[in-house]
Simulated scan of single mutants.
Amino acid sequence: MPQKAAGATKTPRLRLGRALRRRRLELGLTLVKLADRCDKAGVPVAHSHLSKLERGHYTPRPGLRLVLTELLGLDAEVFETEVPEAGGTP
Rank of each mutant, 00 (worst) to 15 (best):
M1C: 09
G7Q: 05
G7C: 11
A8M: 11
T9I: 11
T9L: 13
T9Y: 15
K10N: 15
K10L: 13
T11A: 13
L14M: 13
R15G: 03
R15Y: 02
L16I: 10
R18H: 15
A19M: 14
A19L: 12
A19Y: 03
R21W: 09
R22Y: 11
R22N: 05
R22E: 15
R22F: 13
R23P: 07
R23Y: 05
R23M: 08
R23H: 14
R24I: 10
L25A: 10
L25P: 07
E26G: 12
L27Y: 09
L27H: 08
L27M: 13
G28M: 12
L31S: 01
L31I: 11
V32Y: 06
V32I: 06
K33I: 02
K33T: 10
L34E: 00
R37M: 15
C38T: 04
D39A: 12
K40A: 13
K40Q: 15
G42K: 13
G42A: 07
G42E: 02
V43W: 06
V43L: 03
P44E: 02
V45P: 03
H49C: 09
H49N: 06
H49I: 13
K52V: 00
K52I: 00
L53A: 10
E54S: 06
E54V: 10
R55E: 11
R55F: 04
R55M: 12
H57G: 01
Y58E: 00
Y58C: 02
P60R: 03
P60G: 05
P60V: 01
P60D: 00
R61S: 12
P62F: 04
P62W: 03
G63F: 01
L64C: 06
L64M: 13
L64N: 11
R65S: 06
R65W: 02
L66E: 03
V67G: 00
L68N: 01
T69W: 03
L71D: 03
L72D: 03
G73I: 07
G73A: 09
L74T: 02
A76K: 06
A76E: 04
E77D: 13
V78D: 02
F79N: 04
F79A: 11
T81R: 14
E82S: 06
E82G: 04
V83G: 04
V83D: 03
V83Y: 00
P84E: 08
E85T: 11
E85M: 05
G88S: 12
T89E: 02
P90M: 04
P90S: 15
